[in-house]
């Protein structure tokens, strides 16, 4: 398995606003997530967790420091190249899943690939494969409202991974779920890791963070401590 990090942040800072209104969100954070690795970020609200995720996925740019995605430094990229790199390498799962209610499960999963310019037939085939990988092979033709909360979360994860995206960024993906369903989501993320994805998970719940290989604590925009198991799970 490759040990090159899929995502690497080095001494990253992020400041919102400027002058007297400047609000530092991250102050010198370094982090790497390799293929096959699940890293959880914990911290109180306002600690910079979601900012960290947005920087890693190239949705926001760092004020200083370097952010790399799949080995490519993001700072020098044009908006267009950044968008392209992001689309092919990073997928998002949010707490409010943002599934489109008028599209079926498979159409939701196909959508990012069609936006990539992939033909419908191939997009449908890819979406079918990844739905199968998350255990929803038979649910492709159902609409989001016909699925359970846990199934909808699976669709969102499938959509984030379709087309061989290697980095999955998950922001409180268990937010509204009961604990057995939340555990099932983490089980699924863990399986996707073992199949080679890199997962960066933001959560405020330690029960879910415990599925990670590494747990990073953020406080006031800085890493305060890191917990790793004494023996690697791999």
């Amino acid at each position: 398995m490759s040990t090159d990090p899929v995502s690497r942040l080095t001494e990253v800072t992020k400041v919102y606003g400027s002058g007297e209104q400047a609000v530092p969100a991250l102050r010198g954070v370094s982090l790497r997530v390799a293929a096959g690795e699940l890293v959880a970020v914990m911290g109180p609200s306002g600690s910079g967790k979601s900012t960290l995720l947005n920087l890693a996925g190239g949705l926001e740019r760092a004020t200083s420091g370097t952010v790399e995605l799949a080995g490519v430094p993001l700072a020098g990229l044009s908006a267009r190249s950044l968008a392209s790199l992001r689309r092919t390498h990073a997928g998002y799962v949010f707490q409010d899943l943002n599934l489109i209610p008028s599209l079926t499960a498979i159409e939701n999963v196909m959508l990012p690939r069609e936006l990539d310019g992939v033909r419908t037939r191939q997009a449908r085939a890819e979406a079918g494969t990844v739905l199968g990988e998350v255990g929803l092979a038979d649910a492709g033709d159902r609409f989001p409202e016909e699925l359970s909360g846990g199934q909808r979360q699976r669709v969102a994860i499938a959509r984030a991974l379709v087309g061989g995206r290697s980095l999955l960024l998950a922001d409180e993906p268990t937010g509204a779920l009961d604990t057995p369903t939340g555990d099932a989501v983490l089980q699924l993320l863990r399986e996707r890791c073992e199949a080679g994805a890199a997962v960066l998970l933001v959560t405020h719940e330690s029960r879910y963070a415990a599925w990670a290989d590494r747990v990073v604590y953020l406080r006031d925009g800085q890493v305060t401590d890191t917990a790793e198991p004494l023996v690697s799970s791999r």
Binding site: Q187, R190, S206, R207, A209, A210, W211, A212, V215, Y217, T224, D225, T226, A227, E228, P229, L230, S233
Partner: peptide
Amino acid sequence: VQAQRSATMRALQTLTRAKR
């Protein structure tokens, strides 16, 4: 507090792995 939290998280990670 931080030392305990890291230790408890390691214990949680071990339990979570055993639970699978």
